[in-house]
Design a protein around this nucleic acid. Sequence first.
DNA 1: CGGATCGTTGACAGGTATCAATGCTGGTGG
DNA 2: CCACCAGCATTGATACCTGTCAACGATCCG
Lengths: 233, 233
Amino acid sequence: MKPIVINQAWNGAEKCQLCPIRDLVLFADLKQDDFHLLHLPINEFELEAGAILYEQKDKIDFVYTIRSGLVKLVRYLPNGSYRIIRLLRQGDLAGIEALNGSAYLHHAIAIQNTSVCRIPVKNVEYLNNKTGHLYTQLTARWQKVQSDADIWLADLTMGSSKYRVAKLLLYLANDEVDEAFFLPTREDIGALLAITPETASRIIAEFKRAGLLTTKKNVAKINDSTLELIQSL
Amino acid sequence: MKPIVINQAWNGAEKCQLCPIRDLVLFADLKQDDFHLLHLPINEFELEAGAILYEQKDKIDFVYTIRSGLVKLVRYLPNGSYRIIRLLRQGDLAGIEALNGSAYLHHAIAIQNTSVCRIPVKNVEYLNNKTGHLYTQLTARWQKVQSDADIWLADLTMGSSKYRVAKLLLYLANDEVDEAFFLPTREDIGALLAITPETASRIIAEFKRAGLLTTKKNVAKINDSTLELIQSL
DNA sequence: CGGATCGTTGACAGGTATCAATGCTGGTGG
DNA sequence: CCACCAGCATTGATACCTGTCAACGATCCG
């Protein structure tokens, strides 16, 4: 089993204000005084690839800000296979559904080395009662869940397998050409796109042969021919 | 073009309190005094099948509570076809993304006769500033968007076409056997499940021949054999 | 070195898209 | 009133795509 390493724990007032990615995260709009309202400790974790962040049955006391890395939200199916519902990246909030007291809707599993901040739900509730400064960011995050889900449905669940794989590569590469990005296993690509790992492998291999994609272990780059490919379906 | 009929307009304090489906809608938790905070009029509309509730480019001044009927959220594709991202039913809130000032993410089109209440975003913002009574319902609705999207992804975008159509029928029938429900056109079923209208038609016709489904115009019923079918894939 | 895991590739069957033709139904206008 | 038309549903023939089952290669690790 992949270990989870706890880097540090602190009271919010001390370090969250200095967070280098604070403008990306939930606390972006907080004022200096607000940080004194964070009574419960916020911990930073390092997850290795394969580590479980939370499971559907877990107690729902925390939400997690992704500082870096990549987390998959997974739903297991009766037949033992699984479907990846969404991917979370830097600045995303994992377990946001915990904020209204419902159970986690998925399992959250790191698929590459990932760093997260674990935020007690009670901190968020308390802040929300005492200041209005959290509301905008919270709503923005809920909306991002919706727009991510919509993009998923519109881009990654329709059309041919080749089209979907190409779209996924663009998504993983943040639409940037010649930038290195993490390429998931063929099984995960299959679970992301609702295709079999074999089909995923065939298409990735074909892209590599065609020079659209270069890989080195888990790291891949696309070039701008990939963009053209998608136009042609 | 299908007409939109405005039934009535009123100030919230007068009628929203008496709304027969109030426990289902956004204002479920409001107290008597809160209704006096609704300054802008709330209108009730009747939409005929095919009528457009809003379009992606529209000004985003309103959200809409679905009182009855069925609304599809649609994204058009470059090639002129479309994909249905989600269906909204009684109690759902259409255009919720308007609440944080972003543009509508889809087109919203009635697919059967539908009744909605049009609520100015400013009313919601004002209520939200003055009372905390709206917050729970708002969060619950955001979360419903997420869980609906997840169900969509897990149930309606994977597996064989036959499986997906069966799942959709169950969804449309609210998992209830022998209850009449609205059956969309084959084109809409295709856009819902990412299959072609021909495939949708073939499967529906096959279900009818097998006695799993009975139809009369747009109205259909399933029986409990349909449930068993899904188990068998 | 051997075993485990993952990726690649092949052969084949079955499913789905595509293109095309034909029914069916409701509405419109002569 | 009836004929026609438009839109939708159904069905057929065919080609292509993808899933399935299976074998083999590559890499990592103990």
